[in-house]
Amino acid sequence: MTDSKLIIVGIGAYALARSPVKIKTYGLGSCVGIALYDRRERIGGLVHAMLPSISNARIKENPLKYTDSGIEYLAGEIVKKGSSRKRLEAKLVGGAHMFENRNMNIGERNIELARKTLERLEISIVAEDTGKNYGRTVTLDTSTGDLLIRTILRGDKII
């Protein structure tokens, strides 16, 4: 990990950092961003997953491309860094339906599976900003656990 204060997470990737580093991912559309945060240790991680389940994958080399395996991977890594699964809180962002007249519902399925996976891992979802039809850029502030969400037409908000 570098000493820069901001880490950018690409699509199908993740980052994990301690306070006061910020983790940002650009342009969540139908993709889902899952932030896991440990308030006591002030350590947090962010995954930018594309597709719902790794069980349907042809190549299974990148667990971070999929919502279910991405969450499991991030939860595993954060625990390795000294957190405990019980202290983790989750926030979900994205899973939008960008093109209104198209019936692909990848976004919706991503969110559904993210909720199920977190429930199975017994990690509670403390906030979410999901669905609708617009893109979001997300920044996780590991000093507070806040997620800053930026949009084009709907302004910014913190969850």
């Binding site: 342009g27 559309g29 939008a96 893109g135 949009t151």
Partner: peptide
């Protein structure tokens, strides 16, 4: 065409996601 006014990244990622199915 399907057209949307939004962030470059969100539009591109959504199409890439659809393609990656």
């Amino acid at each position: 065409p399907y057209t949307v006014y939004d962030m470059f990244g969100s539009i591109l990622n959504s199409v890439l996601t659809e393609m990656s199915c």
